[in-house]
Design a protein around this nucleic acid. Structure first.
Lengths: 110, 110
DNA sequence: TTGACATGTAACTAAAAGATTACATATAAA
DNA sequence: TTTATATGTAATCTTTTAGTTACATGTCAA
């Protein structure tokens, strides 16, 4: 069993790049071999290999090996970490939700 | 009225930096003058001024002028943009929610 | 076993990011 | 009207990032 210290810093850096977000979009459809991912971009295959590594280190992607191929798929951990961080500020844009929450705390509907 | 083309790219870059995320945390408490923000960090005041500018350009912070001070506060737009992006992948970590949604679509409880 | 394929890493380069100091501008206070 | 305060910007430097080409490794197919 491999234990990874999932650094939130790495996760935020991972999603900051547009190419990596595009990769995330591709992997949301289905898992894909590294080459399959690379084929869909104009940049070189090694560049994509590095992006995949960064996504892996950010806890956003996990890789499964099958023969000479490495299949990449989305990992819940990383994206959830970002979601939790941002959800913490939800009240700033969802006033309605805020009042609902307050009402719930009071034990009556808002 | 000022129209800003809110670039999602800038927004993701804005939250990628740890100092800027710390600033977001501070502004979540209350609006603060630029100097008030700067005082809480070890780095120079101009560095913070730049971070605030980046947050502003990312649609995460808006600034209100009062005399010689500039009060900064969180702006819903930017963070909501990130939230919407990430919420799009919610199903990857919240299987339960997914089944609830599916059940709702079918018109019966899950 | 030889050759092709799939992938990752090393070395290097160019561009972007984050910080600093110096300076300019606007407003409050003496 | 001086002086001090609050802030933003310019010029500059260093580090990090994203990309490239060359190369090493491992696996499948002849």
């Amino acid at each position: 069993m491999i234990l990874m210290t999932l650094n939130i810093e790495q996760t935020f850096k991972a999603i900051a790049d547009p190419t990596r977000r595009a990769i995330i979009g591709l992997l949301a459809e289905k898992e894909r071999a590294a080459g399959d991912v690379a084929r869909r971009f104009a940049i070189s295959r090694p560049a994509i290999a590095k992006h995949l590594k960064i996504l892996r280190e950010g806890g956003i992607v996990v890789t499964r090996r099958d023969g000479r191929e490495r299949f990449n798929r989305l990992n819940p951990e990383g994206l959830k970490m970002i979601f939790d961080w941002i959800a913490h500020y939800e009240r700033f844009w969802d006033e309605k939700l805020l009042s609902l929450k307050k009402a719930a705390e009071k034990g009556k509907e808002g």
